[in-house]
Design a protein around this nucleic acid. Structure first.
Lengths: 204, 204, 204, 204
DNA sequence: CATGAATGAGCCTTCATTCAT
DNA sequence: AATGAATGAAGGCTCATTCAT
């Protein structure tokens, strides 16, 4: 949830706004937030740097809105899964699949998130990033523990390590995933889950 | 392999040089290369910003040397493994273990690499990053293919996807790994390998 | 011919551009290019140092444009003279007169040229300075030779020495010439020519 | 006459001092005073930048000593000429010849003087440059006036213009003169005087 | 809505200079 | 006499941001 603004902000047409944010997200993802100048965004949007300030308060507020919008949608999906009352394995499967769908839909936002979240989370304005991470961790850790208790997941593993393993494994895919490629998000999810759950080695 | 320098560079005492590079690496890793000002590095080293230029040509050359040194050592380890004539599964195990050891030894450099390599690789000066990536890919892909041919790894998986899966899974650990923590690199490697090779799910 | 630029450069209003260049030329001429800080130019222009970069790529590109513009106009004048088919003496007279007119019109640029050309000409960006010098030399040397052949100029003199003598004699005037002084450029040219052609001594 | 110093200054061997000043003068002449870094001088002298400060107080004091030494020698020569009681034409001839000899002996210093004197003369430390210029002007102007009165020089010319003409004409030669070239200073002086006194044109 | 022009803070880097050894 | 290392003051340049038009 972005911080309060002062001047224009929500007034202009939301479509133009979204267009510009998409452009900005693409540039942020490609070059990194810090390395992205407002001018580059403006160039990509076909306007002058100063003109962006009619639509947004600051470069940071663009980043804010991009990430907040993404996390909003992400949690809508996650919450649905978590509320569905599935078993641990099915929950993991659904969460992973949902994650790949988000990568498919919000590639740029996810890439930005991956690269910048850790640093940003320390700033008050981006406190919601830390909150999200906590919620995220709770959901996964709980599910994994439940799975171990139910005998669905192996007992020998460090549960926290396993959580990080699965989490990273999924999100890092954004670094090579390109929407419209040969694999659908669901197909990639299936393969990932197969590796994560059953391993790469042939069972002996 | 860092680019050619002209002025001081290797002449002054290598220990001080390394000290400063370690400091710089820590700051780069914590704040990101772009967000790191030369002043921050100097502060952390207890000197003035300008004084760094007695030891290094530029901020970029510090980054260069940090990454090049890291990759040098990494490949020393990898090459030893690859030349050992191990079977596919054992090669993977040795590579993963070696990787965690490198994370343990060069945490900062690995973190920088993770965050900046993609962008840097396009610059001529950092061409060696792209070269390394290619070599890396060949080594892993070859090993995996051999493993599938030998019936050690499951045949149903997309080999490229599997490569990315393992690669990312390992390196991303740098984001949470802290040297001197409760798990040794070897212990973490063992758990990772257990998950990657045999999966998280209980065998049915 | 200035080097190719990329960003703003020619787009903004050419009048402001010229204004700023005139200011810059004045400061360059008074203090020397190296000793002139961008801040001094900005002060003289009544703006902040950074603001200059809206109009120009760099301090060097200002210098470039000042010199290139001057040489362009200079050669327009020279070429007209050289194409007029005058006799050797009349050509020299016309070239000298034209030169003093240029000093009158572009005092600052000429002063900069005098002081910096030699050093600048070695840089690729300012290669056109060397080219101009070559063309210049050819024109004068040719005219002098023609004059000697025609019996208009004395035969005993080292032609190259004579060329340098006249050339320097003319341009060095920029060091004391002030537009709007008691002598017009044409009047100064007449006196100079009188000395150069007929000598200072009373004929015996 | 250089300003007073504080620390070492005259203590070390005068030969080394002179050696270093010659080196410095050469670099100043080649690159310009401002563009010359202390490091470049030290490089040319085969030592480190800081080491120069054992011999000299500052970069400026090197310049000071170079120029002061040159002017000292120059005035020794000029004063001898002026005290010889020669006629106006012979005085001019002797001064010009002496000037070319100085260019031959102190090429670097003369070059520096030509390029930097105007700017330096405004600084108190270099006040002696302005003094010298005044003395110089008086000597020449007086001689020229005497020559016109005596009927040796043409009456029609602006005397001040003539003075500048001859003065510049001579000193500017430093820009192309190379010691050890095909013409001796005396030979060049003869040719210059021939042009200045009798003109380039054939007498009709 | 957008432009053109400018601001001001801050960044990387250079360089004359100092000083303990 | 000279070195190695550091200082501190600029200097050129970038960039987010502002604002009148």
């Amino acid at each position: 949830m972005p911080t309060a603004k002062k001047k224009p902000n929500v007034s202009p047409s939301p479509e133009r706004r979204r267009e510009l944010l998409d452009t900005a997200a693409e540039v942020f993802a490609a070059q990194g937030y810090n390395a992205t100048t407002v001018r580059k965004i403006a160039d990509a949007a076909g306007m002058l740097a100063g003109s962006l300030y009619y639509h947004f308060d600051s470069k940071e507020s663009m980043l804010d809105e991009i990430l907040a919008t993404f996390l909003d949608e992400l949690w809508t999906g996650y919450d649905t899964v978590l509320a569905a009352g599935l078993g641990p394995r099915e929950t993991i499967e659904a969460l992973v699949t949902e994650s790949f769908r988000e990568i498919d839909r919000h590639r740029a936002a996810v890439a930005i998130y991956q690269k910048e979240a850790r640093t940003l989370a320390t700033q008050p304005r981006f406190g919601y990033l830390a909150d999200s991470q906590t919620k995220f961790e709770e959901a996964w850790l709980g599910t994994l523990e439940r799975g171990v208790a139910d005998g669905v997941f192996r007992a020998g593993l460090d549960i926290r390590l396993t959580y990080r393993f699965i989490r990273d494994t999924v999100w890092v895919a954004v670094s090579w995933y390109r929407p419209g490629g040969q694999h659908s998000p669901e197909e990639i999810a299936r393969q990932y889950l197969s590796m994560v759950l059953d391993g790469v080695a042939v069972r002996t």
